[in-house]
């Protein structure tokens, strides 16, 4: 089992997104660095549009993740309602 990860800006704009990821991926571990947060999780991380919208109180499209993204490790799968990162092995 290996970790996938997503690294996001640690700023006000990404706050809701980070909170949603932490809630929806209870096995994840977050590392805080100057200016950024790296979230690791075994095998898969999923981000649900609905969860993010619940956190930020407005509608949110999955594409908007590009504004907060710094780096990631894993294969990407995205659709209208979710954004997922996973390994295939």
């Amino acid at each position: 089992m290996s970790n996938v990860s997503i690294t996001l800006h640690n700023n006000d704009e990404a706050r809701g997104l980070i909170a949603a990821i932490q809630k929806d991926n209870p096995n994840s571990v977050s590392h805080v660095y100057p200016g950024m947060v790296k979230i690791d999780c075994p095998d898969r991380i999923v981000i649900f549009r609905e969860s993010v919208e619940l956190e930020i109180g407005r509608s949110w499209t999955v594409n908007e993740i590009h504004l907060s993204l710094i780096s990631l490790a894993g294969n990407v799968d995205e659709d209208d309602d979710y954004f997922a990162i996973h390994w295939n092995h």
Binding site: T7, G35, M36, H66, L67, I70, S71, L72, A73, N75
Partner: peptide, 21 residues
């Protein structure tokens, strides 16, 4: 430099994924 670095990194996530695909 920190600011341009983080800003550029947000493009890298797209580039990495393209490379892997």
């Amino acid at each position: 430099t920190v600011t341009f670095g983080f800003s550029a990194q947000s493009d890298e996530a797209r580039h990495m994924t393209l490379g892997l695909e």
